Simulated scan of single mutants.
Amino acid sequence: MKYIETQTLPSLGHAEVRIIARSPEAARAVAEALRLCFSGTEQRSYPGLDGGTRLHLTVDTATTSGPVGTWLATSRTPVGTCAHSDET
């Protein structure tokens, strides 16, 4: 069953990140990679479907480090386009 999660938008300059992985180690590895690029909050971990892991964190997109700042500036997706068919 597919559902749409409703919640409050993060503050300006921040993004809520949801990581879904088969193992906690894989989810933590992705969160660590994000932390190398952005400052962020402590991650929150939840059990996922079928024994997987869901990990949530908030990142500060206004504070970037290293080459990610340049990459972000040149890779903006046009407004109104979605990367996945299930995104609205």
Rank of each mutant, 00 (worst) to 15 (best):
M1C: 08
K2H: 15
K2M: 15
E5A: 14
Q7V: 07
Q7S: 12
T8E: 03
L9M: 04
L9E: 03
P10Y: 13
P10N: 02
L12S: 14
G13A: 12
H14C: 04
H14Y: 15
H14N: 13
A15G: 04
E16V: 09
E16C: 04
V17I: 08
I20E: 12
R22G: 13
S23K: 04
S23D: 08
E25P: 00
A29G: 06
V30E: 05
V30M: 06
L36M: 13
L36H: 11
F38G: 01
S39V: 14
S39N: 05
S39I: 12
S39P: 01
Q43N: 05
R44F: 05
Y46C: 02
P47I: 04
L49D: 14
L49Q: 11
D50R: 08
D50K: 03
D50F: 12
G51S: 04
G52K: 02
L55S: 12
H56Y: 10
H56T: 11
L57D: 07
L57N: 05
V59A: 10
D60K: 00
D60G: 09
T61L: 13
T63E: 11
T63V: 15
G66H: 03
G66R: 01
P67N: 03
P67H: 09
V68D: 02
V68P: 00
G69E: 11
G69A: 11
T70Q: 01
L72D: 13
L72K: 00
A73G: 09
S75M: 05
S75Y: 03
S75G: 10
T77G: 03
T77Y: 11
P78M: 04
P78C: 03
V79F: 11
V79W: 13
G80S: 11
G80Q: 03
T81G: 04
C82Y: 12
C82M: 06
A83Q: 09
A83E: 14
A83W: 11
H84P: 00
S85P: 08
S85A: 10
S85H: 07
D86Y: 13
D86W: 13
